[in-house]
Amino acid sequence: MGLAGALNKAMTALFAVALGVLQPLGPVIGMTIVSLVVGVIMLWIFAMVSNQDAIRGLKDHIRGNLIAVRIYQDNIALLLRLQGKIVGLTLRYMGHSLLPMIVMMGPVLLILFQLNLWFAKAPLEIGQSALLTVSLSAEAAPDVLRAVTFEVPEGVVSETPPVRVAARNEVVWRIRADAPGDYRLVFTTGGESHEKELNVGGDWRSVSSLRTGRGVWEALLYPGESPLKGGVIEAIEIEYADETIPVFGFGINWLVMFFVLSIAFGFALKGPLGVEI
């Protein structure tokens, strides 16, 4: 399975439970609570990893110099010295933030990949069409490309025959779903067989657009389904429509909402939690 697979599996299970609980409350509340929890966790990590005393001292020092700037406004030479000190202190302050940022980057990315799975794409609407693409490895022979088939489950319609794009070693169909549900599409070629999830209709939930076998990074980016392994089929992708989170009649991109809320919660809670950032 590898480290990436294990991480994916653990995070996906964790978010499935957490967001599964929040699912009935809808994506706005779901995202708000996730942002709150992530904001708190990030604060905690920051507090654990950073030198809180040093940060506090540096901030006091900067504040003191800023006051001096206001007092000695008519002493140009002193002002320049003060400004130089402020720049230096600020750089030192940023240096103290660097380590916590690096430490937080890993968990934040894993969280973002999970949020991407839950908030970035909308399930197909009933009657809506989408492209379904199966990508083969560069080594796959032309007859393997021709042999790719998929079983069309009841409730799903393949609107077109497959387009075999030899120039890219991929096969594309236009599919449509006429009934809601989470379908398993089964693809076969050259003796191998793989499944891909298809989400149609229903409430807000995780939507996996890509099942991939193209390396660790892509596997981490698309954690919704276990990676494809070792065959000629490298990736199976369904082109879902982008989703936004409805807030006061506006569709907000999930990433924007997450960063705004988690930063807002972080700043709001740093005082009560006694964290200096």
Binding site: E159, T160, P161, P162, V163, R164, V165, R168, R174, E239
Partner: peptide, 22 residues
């Protein structure tokens, strides 16, 4: 436009849009 002449179907890529037509 990527053609599959056997099936008489094609895939189009136009800027960010992709679609398949018979």
């Amino acid at each position: 436009v990527y053609l599959d002449r056997e099936e008489a179907v094609a895939k189009f890529e136009v800027q960010d849009s992709e679609f398949v037509l018979e």
